[in-house]
């Protein structure tokens, strides 16, 4: 596993783990012309992907300057031209954004949902992984894994559809309750329980997938530790506490960091699909706010300001979390940052 972990991205900071075994640079001193002749095919191979990212990732990233402009879509024949031609207005869009109470509602909803999911649902894949790992029969275990990984590959439209058909007002559960004389209530449209609903949907979709990384970490734990603990008289619970959980610690911290960095992001499609059924008050999150303000109301400047605000906070959060992880002596997110 450690070999997959270090992707070699940011090497500026001395890494607490030894860097991936990389071949020593060959003939680094040779002239530029010689290196060009030797490596131009490699550069040619890299070019298409780099070009696509340049156009569809980096250019729109620069396009975020629209957040600092008074965007007028008629000031150019294309949107890009219009961005360039629109006048700079400094932080006016941000000031407008921060005065919008709907923005604060969206921010509050987002934070409430991510915090709720972190507290109640983060531990569940760990528990499921430990449970799966204890299944002795390999065939049974791989069958369960096949089934529980599957929903990860479903689109959000499909997941929400399943929930509507199972738990919605006309769904299987409501039918069964009605058949047994209980008056069902429609979870799919109830704003009060929306936070539980979306968390359950995310759980259904990804709890199985979430176990993969913990299962890998579990198999990396030295089995002789368990044997030694058992011969010292530790029962299964004490072995869980003193061997298994410490063995999972680096992965848990890594994933917590990622979660922290994502605490302003809660799946986009999931919310846009359900926002109208539940109501804006409970279901508006930052991403849907950006969409409705920016593209539906066509207030591009303020919408982009909201998006930029979210991205900036997310970046700061992940850098802080990474720093914290180093302070705790963990290796942090070298893959991501």
């Amino acid at each position: 596993m450690s070999s997959t972990k270090v992707a070699g991205p940011v090497q500026a900071r001395p890494s607490p783990v030894p860097p991936a075994p990389e071949a020593p640079p060959k003939r680094n001193r040779s002239s530029f012309a010689a290196r060009w002749r030797r490596d131009r095919v490699l550069l040619l191979m890299t070019a298409p992907a780099a070009l696509l990212l340049l156009v569809f990732h980096y250019i729109p990233t620069l396009g975020n300057i629209v957040a600092f402009k008074d965007y007028d879509q008629w000031s150019g024949s294309t949107a890009v031209e219009a961005i360039v031609n629109s006048p700079w207005i400094g932080f006016t869009n941000f000031a407008e954004l921060f005065e919008d109470s709907q923005f604060w509602d969206a921010l509050r909803n987002t934070l409430a949902i991510t915090t709720f999911q972190l507290v109640f649902f983060f531990p569940l894949p760990i528990a499921l992984a430990i449970l799966l790992n204890s299944v002795v029969s390999r065939r049974l275990r791989s069958f369960i894994q096949t089934v529980v990984y599957l929903p990860h590959f479903f689109s959000w439209v499909l997941v929400v559809t399943f929930f509507v058909q199972m738990l919605g007002g006309a769904g299987l559960l409501a039918q069964t309750l009605r058949d047994n004389g209980v008056q069902p209530w429609d979870v799919m449209t109830d704003p009060d329980t929306f936070i539980v609903l979306v968390s359950t949907e995310s759980l259904w979709k990804d709890v199985g997938w979430g176990t993969i990384v913990f299962l890998a970490a579990l198999t990396a734990i030295d089995q002789s530790l368990y044997e030694a603990a058992a011969s010292d008289g530790a029962n299964r619970w004490r072995r869980l506490w003193h061997v298994t959980l410490p063995g999972l610690r680096p992965v848990v911290i890594l994933l917590l960091i990622l979660q922290l960095g994502n605490s302003l992001s809660v799946g986009f499609e999931q919310f846009i699909l359900q926002r109208d059924a539940v109501g804006r008050q409970a279901a508006e999150v930052l991403d849907t706010y950006v969409y409705y303000l920016g593209l539906v109301t066509q207030d591009y400047g303020v919408g982009a300001a909201a998006g930029l605000f979210k991205a900036a906070i997310g970046l700061v959060l992940i850098l802080i979390a990474n720093k914290l992880a180093h302070r705790f002596g963990e290796q942090g997110v070298f893959v991501k940052s």
Binding site: T61, L62, G63, D287, G303, G307
Partner: peptide, 9 residues
């Protein structure tokens, strides 16, 4: 890039 600039591009 975020939603709005991507859409505009």
């Amino acid at each position: 890039p975020g939603l709005i600039p991507s859409y505009l591009l």
